[in-house]
């Protein structure tokens, strides 16, 4: 099962890369930059998926106190920070050439930045706690708090921007044609598979480290 999952993920990632860099035509408005979106959007989805896993597993850990849930929760928190960081970086690399700015106060960007900061805090709390058991409990609490807070942050930023000054530049104006949808779908699938494999491996590593 494990070699199969790793192999299938690697194959999906390669196909995704091929579709994104070779097969996909340049977009009429964004040009070649559309290719950045094939990393950016899947990474964002993976980040939110990882945060959801972290929140769910942490809640289960706090309820059941089964170490296995903590391993998954920790893996989810690390991957949420990793993928949201990647989302921010690729978002900037897309925004500079297409929008002309590195950063726009777009609701999705701000929400992702908040997610990134809260999960970095979650990991720091775990590492800096007085003892490992307390670290597990405290970081699980932060993971739950962070994930529940994110939707409220998102909508407040949406309203803060849109109700005051004209809607900010957003991806919504850019309609994606079918020839862009296929690479996007394959890459999204590949990144979610990558997320699953990394979650499983990270949790396994944590359980090995505890056994030792």
């Amino acid at each position: 099962m494990r070699p199969f999952a790793v192999g299938a993920t690697a194959a999906l990632l390669s196909v995704g890369l091929f579709l994104a860099l070779w097969v996909s035509p340049p977009d009429s408005y964004q040009g070649e930059y559309v290719r950045i979106l094939y990393v950016h959007v899947p990474a964002a989805l993976a980040a939110y998926g990882a945060a959801a896993v972290a929140c769910g597993a942490s809640a289960l850990y706090l309820w059941r106190r089964d170490l296995r849930w903590d391993f998954v929760g920790r893996a989810g928190a690390e991957l949420a920070a990793l993928f949201s960081g990647l989302t921010l970086l690729t978002g900037m690399l897309w925004g500079k050439p297409v929008w002309g700015v590195w950063w726009a106060w777009d609701a999705r960007l701000v929400t992702t930045a908040v997610l990134f900061l809260l999960y970095v805090g979650c990991l720091l709390v775990r590492d800096l706690a007085d003892d490992p058991e307390r670290g597990r409990r405290l970081s699980a609490a932060v993971a739950v708090l962070a994930f529940l807070d994110v939707p409220v942050v998102h909508y407040s930023v949406v309203w803060f921007r849109t109700l005051h000054q004209g809607p900010s530049i957003s991806l919504q104006g850019v309609k994606l044609a079918p020839e862009f949808l296929l690479p996007l779908a394959v890459n999204t699938l590949a990144y979610l598979a990558l997320l699953g494999v990394l979650l499983a491996e990270r949790a396994r590593l944590a359980s090995l480290e505890v056994e030792r």
């Binding site: 807070d149 942050v153 909508y155 407040s156 930023v157």
Partner: peptide
């Protein structure tokens, strides 16, 4: 680090 991002909605509201 935890308080400010979490309370963004209160700030904006």
């Amino acid at each position: 680090l935890l308080f400010l991002p979490a309370t963004v909605p209160v700030l904006l509201a």
